[in-house]
Structure formats: structure tokens, C-alpha cells
């Protein structure tokens, strides 16, 4: 059997911490950040029946983090009786987006074609964003299920971004930037984002400059959003695990630095 080295102990420790804290199933109370509150207030301020585009701009690998974010957001939009148009600008997000939308729509007894429609994937995201600015039915003559765009009651008066209250990009990469560059700058559509934690610093300047209308993200953002809408979800359940795992990483960094500086002092002494 292979001898265990420090890497194995570190990963085993982290895995044990996450399993134990998740099994404990404790919901931590947390303070809601102004960014998440801004997103919540934005959705809350939209009038009943307003149409919002939800763009699933992510890959399958980020599903564990995207899922709680998307579910919290979709639950809020459906509970506010907004009409949703689902699209995907990355191929891998197509099936995930459809599943998340239908799952939450079922929770709120929403009807396909009347309360929400899923148009699916369109290749060449820049061309797709620009094309929808001119005409959404020309860009998507059919929806994800193969029904004609014109057949849906909800889409009868939706021609382009002028008929849309806003776009929410659920992203794990740089696709939201293209929504800002081509959707917001050229067509003045209000762009908001729900992103993975790793992308938060990328989009902070856009939020500060007002190019992004609102943004929240990460598992913590999902937990905060779940708190605001008053519905429990995996975001809230995961907060204890995330907090303890972060403390574990901080301790590892401190221990690593102590070992490094002690080793350096020893080397200095021997030379």
C-alpha cells in the first residue's frame, strides 16, 4: 500500500470536515450583503407580468455552485409572477437550464408557454446577443422543445430587448461581460448577474460603474438570497461547512508559514 503523505492528510481532513458539518445539517444565521439585497430589491421592484430573460451562461462543471444560486433566483422570480424566457449561450448549460426552470416552475404551478418559455442554446454568443437586440423571434424561430416562437401566448408581444424588463446572466465565466458590452451598451437592456464566487472580483468594477444593474454570487450569495425569500435550500445548509472549511484553509496557511519560516531560520543558522 502506498505510504500516505501530507497531501493525503490535508485532503482527508478537508473531506472529513465537510462531511461532518453537512451531516450535522445546521443552518447558520448570516447577515445579508448589500449586493444580494440590491438584486433581491431589483427583482422585487419589477411589476407582475414583466418579462425577464434568464441566460444560463455556464458549464456543467460549476453546477454544484450554480444550482443553489439559480434555484434561489428562479424561485423569487416565479413567486413574483414574472414571465421568464430561458436561454443558454454555452452548450453545456442548455440541459441544466431547462431542468432548473421546469423544476422551479412546477413548484409554483407555472405553465409552459404562458408563464415561462425555454428557448435553449444559440451558438456564437456575441452574434446571439446582438441578434436578439434586433429580433428575438428571428434569433429563436423555435423554442428548446421545437414549438414555434409565435405559438407561445407569452411571447406574442416580445420582439426585442425593448419589450424585456432585464437580462439575468447566470454565469461561471466571462459571458456576462459580453452581455454588458453588447446588450447593455448597445441596446440599453438592464443586465444583472448571478455568478460563481470566483467571478465576483471580475464583475465588481462593472457593478460599481453601474454597467451591471445588480449582482450576487457564490454559495454565500445563494444562502443570503434564500434567507431573503424565506425558503431553505442548499445554500443555507452549506454555510456551516463552508465556514469551517475556510477556517481549516486559514489554519493550513498559518501552519505552512510557520513551517516555512522555521525551516528558513534553520537553513540560515547552518550556513
Amino acid at each position: 500500500m502506498k505510504r500516505l503523505n501530507s497531501r493525503h492528510w490535508i485532503f482527508s481532513g478537508l473531506f472529513a470536515i465537510v462531511v461532518i458539518t453537512m451531516a450535522a445539517n445546521v443552518n447558520l444565521d448570516m447577515r445579508v450583503s448589500p449586493e444580494t439585497e440590491r438584486m433581491f430589491n431589483y427583482i422585487d421592484s419589477l411589476p407582475t407580468g414583466a418579462t425577464v430573460i434568464v441566460s444560463f451562461d455556464h458549464e456543467a462543471s460549476s453546477l454544484p455552485e450554480i444550482r443553489p444560486i439559480a434555484l434561489a433566483l428562479l424561485r423569487h422570480t416565479f413567486s413574483r409572477d414574472l414571465n421568464l424566457i430561458g436561454i443558454a449561450l454555452l452548450a453545456e448549460g442548455t440541459g441544466i437550464g431547462y431542468r432548473l426552470m421546469t423544476q422551479t416552475a412546477d413548484e409554483y404551478d407555472k405553465t409552459y408557454g404562458i408563464d415561462y418559455v425555454y428557448l435553449g442554446f444559440k451558438p456564437q454568443y456575441i452574434a446571439a446577443i446582438l441578434s436578439m437586440g434586433e429580433s428575438i423571434p428571428d434569433t429563436y424561430p423555435e423554442d428548446y422543445l421545437g414549438y414555434a416562437y409565435r405559438d407561445h401566448e407569452m411571447l406574442q408581444n416580445i420582439k426585442n430587448y425593448n419589450d424585456i424588463a432585464g437580462v439575468i446572466s447566470i454565469a461561471d465565466g466571462s459571458l456576462t461581460t459580453h452581455w454588458i458590452e453588447y446588450g447593455a451598451s448597445r441596446y440599453n437592456v438592464k443586465v444583472s448577474a448571478a455568478v460563481t464566487a470566483a467571478m465576483m472580483t471580475t464583475y465588481d468594477p462593472y457593478l460599481a460603474s453601474g454597467q451591471l444593474h445588480a449582482m450576487f454570487g457564490g454559495l454565500r450569495g445563494a444562502a443570503e438570497y434564500e434567507k431573503l425569500i424565506g425558503i431553505g435550500g442548499s445554500g443555507k445548509r452549506s454555510m456551516l461547512a463552508q465556514s469551517v472549511a475556510h477556517i481549516y484553509v486559514v489554519l493550513l496557511i498559518i501552519v505552512g508559514n510557520i513551517i516555512y519560516f522555521r525551516g528558513r531560520r534553520k537553513d540560515g543558522g547552518s550556513s
Binding site: 454544484p64 457564490g218 454559495l219 442548499s234 463552508q242
Partner: peptide, 14 residues
Amino acid sequence: YTVMSRMSTLIGRV
């Protein structure tokens, strides 16, 4: 934030 993101992925799978 990246550490937070990777932890979220692990937590999601667990």
C-alpha cells in the same frame, strides 16, 4: 473567492 468557489463545488458534491 476562488478558494470559496472550489469549496462550494466540493460541498455541492458531498
